[in-house]
Design a protein around this nucleic acid. Structure first.
Length: 513
RNA sequence: GCCCCGUUCGUCUAGUCUGGUCUAGGACGCAAGAUUUUCAUUCUUGAAAUCAGGGGUUCAAAUCCCCUACGGGGUACCA
């Protein structure tokens, strides 16, 4: 029987959403949409000590920016509400149910006792594990006499509820990416399901909620693979094996250099964002950069992330969201971790930046200009954008590539000058300025006409006088731009207009001689 | 330590299941050339992986099996 595809993204609001988390969410989204299913947002906030104010809001905002819409969940609602685990109160009943059926037990050991035990084992170069080999010697409802357990419970002694792993079975699970994974239960530890603070741990809450919310596929990071046998056993213990979701454990995102998981620090160190949106730590005030603020376009981030660990099997690399949905499949997800590449991210953004309509880019640029104290005309800015955008990866590179189209050069690049500005340059340029003044008069305020005529004139003039073409043209460029860079010279003159063109030449002559 | 997962150009990866068409394909980056009388874009070309290493199986192995090494993850009353 075909079950409706229902997947969830279940972040913990302990800080800003990591870019690896965004990729996990994206794969969930793509899979659900591919199969006309539901995409659910569940907030897993059962660890009250690690809650960070603002984190949940941040998550919501990030998905809004990325244009990934949830069908159900926090911020959306739905028939399985509430979707915030701290607001769900049914977990303890399920934990008790497991105690009744013998799959779990009460444990009264204090964290201090366990810490001491771990230290003790450590000293003997061993690792303590709360499992089938050690549980009899510890303080729990399996080792203690019944009346003692009743007494402790009645005395409201703090306890946790632990899963009781059978000693000699093997859990066999099917992972959609890795195939069959087997694990001997004797090697597994009796994980805490329910904490002494009255809240469930991830393992319990996750399984209960996935069952209750009718989740069909669990697509999550590889860090969960080792605890998946526990989850499978929990489904079995609850008698939910028939509707257990299918699992897919995604490879991790690695640091661009060296080895290890991509972390917040890497971004700061290597100069690229690890978070979708900028984040200010509420405690330290530390600011971490975001893709959005760094000028990345959401569709570019999505495209880049989709291809990091998945590929369509052909050579297509540029995908919009609909194309991704169409092409996506779990069996084309790679098994190994992927190192993040800043260069590739930029390349994607360059592509998507070029697709933006000029008026839209111009609007953004206009604000940037305003912040620099430049009041420009929108029509003019549009013309500039049209000519300059192809050399930009991001909107915030516009200024560096177009500043000379708004303000006259304040200084002249020394290297360019020493290379191109020879002793004859001054006299040649003043001569040219002279002629340009006449051409300007003839063009009568038509800057395009002026630029066209000026271009023809320059060509003829330089040829006639047998001046070195490259040298003169580059000096002209230095005069107008301040450097040997920038767009086509005639286009610069057309944009600047005759008056500005001529005055810049004259100024260069007076400054550089 | 123990457990789990992985390993193809610098990076992301195709190819592995269903051995031969792989003298291993593409992309980013890099280099060179063309265009741009500049710079960038763009285009063309190129360098770049003895398929982690070793041992099998086979007429034939990147592809199947075993071992080793290396990398990653887990080993919490965190998720």
């Amino acid at each position: 029987m075909e079950r409706k595809v229902r997947v969830r993204f279940a972040p913990s609001p302990t800080g800003p959403l990591h870019i690896g988390g965004v990729r996990t969410a994206l794969y969930n989204y793509l899979y659900s949409k591919k199969h006309k299913g539901d995409f659910i947002l569940r907030i897993e906030d059962t660890d009250r000590t690690r809650l960070v104010p603002g984190a949940e809001k941040y998550i919501l905002e990030a998905f809004e920016w990325l244009n990934l819409k949830f069908d159900e969940g926090v911020g959306v609602g739905g028939k399985h509400a509430p979707y915030r685990q701290s607001e769900r109160t049914m977990y303890k009943d399920y934990a008790l149910q497991l105690i009744d059926s013998g799959w779990a037990y009460y444990a009264f050991d204090t964290p201090q006792q366990l810490d001491a035990l771990r230290a003790d084992y450590q000293a003997r170069k061993m690792t303590f594990q709360y499992d089938c080999t050690t549980r009899q010697g510890l303080r729990n409802s399996l080792s203690l006499p019944d009346d003692e357990v009743r007494r402790l419970l009645a005395a409201e002694e703090p306890y946790v509820i632990r899963f009781r792993f059978p000693a000699d079975t093997e859990v066999v699970m099917q992972d959609m990416i890795r195939g069959e994974v087997r694990m001997k239960t004797s090697l597994l530890d009796d994980k805490v399901l329910f904490k002494s603070d009255g809240l469930p741990t991830y393992h319990l809450a996750n399984v209960v909620d996935d069952h209750l919310m009718e989740i069909s596929h669990v697509i999550r990071g590889e860090e969960w693979l080792p605890s998946c046998p526990l989850h499978v056993m929990l489904y079995e213990a609850f008698g939910w094996k028939d509707t257990m979701p299918q699992f897919a454990h995604l490879p991790l995102l690695l640091k661009p250099e060296g080895s290890g998981k991509l972390s917040k620090r890497d971004g700061d160190r290597l100069g690229f964002p690890v978070f979708p949106l900028q984040w200010t730590d509420p405690k330290s005030g530390e600011v971490s950069s975001g893709y959005r603020e760094s000028g990345y376009l959401p569709q570019s981030v999505i495209n880049m992330l989709a291809l990091l660990g998945w590929n369509p099997g052909n050579e297509q690399e540029i995908f919009d969201l609909d194309e991704l949905i169409e092409a996506f499949s779990i069996d084309r997800i790679s098994k190994h971790g992927a190192k993040f590449s800043v260069e590739k991210a930029k390349w994607f953004n360059h592509h998507y930046f070029q697709q933006l309509p000029n008026p839209q880019i111009a609007q953004t640029f206009l604000q940037d200009l305003a912040s620099r104290g430049i009041n420009a005309d929108l029509q003019y800015v549009e013309k500039v954008v049209e000519q300059v955008k192809e050399r930009c990866n991001f909107a915030n590179e516009l200024w560096d590539n177009a500043d000379y189209l708004f303000i006259a050069p304040k200084a002249y690049n020394e290297k360019a000058v020493s290379k191109r500005w020879k002793s004859e340059a001054g006299s040649r340029l003043s001569e040219i300025a002279e002629h340009l003044r006449q051409i300007a008069k003839d063009a009568d305020g038509n800057d395009d006409l002026f630029a066209r005529n000026a271009e023809t004139f320059l060509h003829n003039h330089i040829t006639e006088r047998q001046y070195p073409m490259g040298e003169v043209m580059n000096c002209l460029r230095i005069a107008l731009v301040g450097d040997t860079k920038g767009i086509n010279l005639a286009n610069i003159m057309a944009l600047l207009g005759s008056e500005q063109t001529i005055s810049r030449i004259e100024r260069a002559v007076s400054v550089l001689g």
